[in-house]
Write a protein that binds this DNA or RNA. Sequence first.
DNA 1: CGTTGCGTTGAATAAGGTCAAATAGAGTGG
DNA 2: CCACTCTATTTGACCTTATTCAACGCAACG
Lengths: 246, 246
Amino acid sequence: MPAQPALKPLNTDQLKTVCSSCSLRELCLPMGLSETEIERLDQLVSTRRRIKRGENVYRAGDPFASLYAIRSGFFKSNVILEDGRDQVTGFHMPGEIVGMDGISTDRHACNATALEDSEVCVIPFARLEEASRQVRSLQRQFHKVMSREIVRDQGVMMLLGTMRAEERLAAFLLNLSQRFVARGYSPAEFHLRMTREEIGSYLGLKLETVSRIFSKFQDEGLIGVQQKHIRILHVDGLKAMLGHHT
Amino acid sequence: MPAQPALKPLNTDQLKTVCSSCSLRELCLPMGLSETEIERLDQLVSTRRRIKRGENVYRAGDPFASLYAIRSGFFKSNVILEDGRDQVTGFHMPGEIVGMDGISTDRHACNATALEDSEVCVIPFARLEEASRQVRSLQRQFHKVMSREIVRDQGVMMLLGTMRAEERLAAFLLNLSQRFVARGYSPAEFHLRMTREEIGSYLGLKLETVSRIFSKFQDEGLIGVQQKHIRILHVDGLKAMLGHHT
DNA sequence: CGTTGCGTTGAATAAGGTCAAATAGAGTGG
DNA sequence: CCACTCTATTTGACCTTATTCAACGCAACG
């Protein structure tokens, strides 16, 4: 065998990634790290994986080995219930990290399914732990990422526990909008990658209810909806819905 | 000032704690650690704090400095909403760790309120991070604890998103029962430390609904209820309720 | 022994869910 | 490029569930 690994063709789905030159570094794990520290991260985040729409990065029950930073595309986390229904527990976009559910039992607790053709950076967990034993700021940053996930989940619990259907949808749209802005996209106009059913599952509503409320918001001039294309026309109107529990 | 710190009287609420001799060590942070490693933990978990019923270990907005391992007693995590309502996001019992919500922003995101006179072990976070840079298994264990919290929250999201009122109550009782068993208490008979309103808040139901369903379960012979005293009479009956979404 | 907070219960109501039918797009194969 | 299929979405009518509002009981406590 000739020793030419560097000339290995690139037509596999394993590509070289570098955090230091990644446009998402201010949203992702490298956030707040120095140049040198990010280079340490580059050493461990060595491969990317392409995930086609409908495929999974991992499935519930899979052995846990890595975290995944979303580089492009859009994902849902979901669990298939005994009765076959697909319960959505989150939506994830570029710069976010998925897979942390697997750490506790060494097996993943849910699926991470691509809602469009996507790409993730593979972060081998053992190497991340090793690096974060060496680099204090990386350790801190990783802990913050996990904690942020906990706080985010608690936010969803509050949404599900206290809000009525219209508030949930309004909160959902505002949240998406915010996250798009942070990634340099328009806050007012975006494309939903998920179906009404997935939105409903995530928000604890039926798809018909989601559809009806979108229509209602449209009639009230708050948003424009055309299938998956959303245009927010009156942000303050949506914000005003939050906290009006009756 | 005489140098006699060792003779300092014990009538403060700061007491010496040792994980190595703690009866909860198999549920708590020391889980799975060796004797030597637990001793390293002893060095940093140096103080206990007593929290009286109704008082908070920390409040939303407080600067984050420590995690807290519950040594005895019972807590709720909660957020006070703008309109003054108290939204409960979790119940916590001995051996569980609270405060991880504070890591992400260096401020706590919720309150941790004692539902009865309680005691917590203070785990200064900077020192925990330091120790977990040195002790690989401690690092791993801490990450598992955080991940478990993420998985737990997702379980609650599924409960709120998919279950009807009776299922929620059944799941709630079974969950409490399980956690009591793990702590050496009876699985079948226990005392609720929280009010119907707090249960309802946690489960996304009104207190009247909680009360009604307890009565219904009692009529059906599934449980015995007398105020806050609960006796589970027919575990399988409760389990059978889960997954019957209609 | 009245007060106060918590829990239970009933009746009326509203919010969402269920069922069903019609429509609109996206993708496919000819 | 068109017809066809399949899936997603919208909308209406009706029904179930949980909430709301209200009254009352109970236990703890000063």
